[in-house]
Nucleic acid binder design. Structure first.
Lengths: 219, 219
DNA sequence: ATCCGCATAATATGATCAAATTTTCTGTGG
DNA sequence: CCACAGAAAATTTGATCATATTATGCGGAT
């Protein structure tokens, strides 16, 4: 009937482990990542680790260092501008597509996540904020049933994550009033363009915080 | 001084091999790709093949088949629409960024590629068309020095390739008047927005051919 | 400062185990 | 007697590991 135990392969475990560490900023930019180190920490052999690293490198979450080493990529003004450009175009569209497929049942799940998010903000829990904000956006985007834009958004967040974490670590969770309520209202009204706009405003606000902290323009 | 022999690793060889086959449509959509098969054909061992497949899967060039097999993804109207949306936004921007960094020296290289392209079109050489058209676009885009948008464009072409090949195989290379001249003129005039528009028109024309052949809307 | 060995980490292979698919075998019903 | 469904064996393919090989970076000696 439903999910039989389903053994998750080792390479998938390793992948998720590193991915989440990057996504939530546990691995700071510039941090080198070695195969051997992961073999020892995660107690698996080289092959699955190598597969996970190739995958993460392809997704832009890790970067080759010329000589055969990989590390978490460094962020700069130019790269930030590109991330802003791509997120601006892709995520509102995903929100719109998701809004079309959305049902009342699912809005409750979003509300539940948003509640946890607000709690984390109130407590000043940066790690919790990173986690639940990600969960909210991708619970929404997943409803788009998109096979192209959704993976793209995932890689954009993987690249954006470490920076986001640093900024939040500096400025705290105080100024993080989001536009999730607005998005959920739009979904309920079935005003799909409004949903897209709410998400656009939400992520633009995030960009603004980064700009203020770094002095980058990121037009 | 410059490029010392630099041994290319086996996983990279395998990766490029499969990637090019997908890009130029030698592997049709639905084609299953097995690890064992590649091990035998390319005469390398499993690990490098596995790495190449993980990487290509992450890039959307291959797709998991539930049971642990992979194949070249199937194209459909919905997926096509998403590819159109993404390419429309990303590639003109890449062309614009490239245009800014471009010098006269490099325009000659583009012209040379475009000449080969025209030749392939004249001869009705579909394979050559696929190859040189790709070379033209990415020789241009590469000048953007983009670290985010360029990889995204690469994965979009990987997903788009097999379809493009099928359509060209059906309709031939007759109706493939491109807008590359226009783009190169804009670059020479240093009118970066015009370069973006020329590329936009170029790819839109490609979409139109697909729409006409398939009946898909892909707005 | 440059060169040479040593330590370390990455690359690549073949063997082994597990899962899935295909083939073969067998018994039942028409 | 033949056709077919279902089960069990055999084969193929994928996943993981331990190990050998190769390249890179480091540190000391010239």
């Amino acid at each position: 009937m439903d999910s039989i135990p389903q053994k998750i392969p080792a390479h998938e475990i390793v992948y998720r482990n590193i991915r989440d560490q990057i996504l939530y900023g546990d691995l700071p930019p510039g941090q080198p990542v070695t195969i051997q180190g992961l073999v020892e920490n995660l107690e698996v052999s080289m092959t699955p680790v190598r597969e996970a690293i190739r995958r993460l490198t392809a997704e832009g979450a890790l970067e080759f260092q010329g000589n055969r080493r990989v590390c978490v990529p460094q962020m700069g003004e130019k790269r930030f501008a590109e991330l802003v450009f791509a997120r601006r175009h892709i995520e509102p569209k995903l929100a719109e597509l998701a809004s079309v497929n959305m049902n009342g049942q699912f809005v409750h799940k979003l509300k539940a996540i948003d509640l946890q998010l607000d709690e984390a903000i109130a407590k000043g829990d940066v790690q919790g904020y990173m986690c639940h904000n990600h969960r909210f956006h991708f619970a929404l985007y997943a409803q788009s049933n998109s096979q192209v834009l959704l993976p793209m958004a995932k890689t954009l967040w993987l690249r954006y994550g470490p920076l986001s974490r640093i900024i939040c670590g500096q400025t705290g969770t105080q100024n993080l009033a989001d536009h999730h309520e607005e998005a959920m209202e739009s979904i309920a009204r079935r005003d799909h363009k409004a949903t897209a706009n709410a998400i656009r405003t939400d992520i633009e606000q995030g960009f603004e915080i980064v700009r203020n902290s770094t002095g980058w323009s990121g037009i």
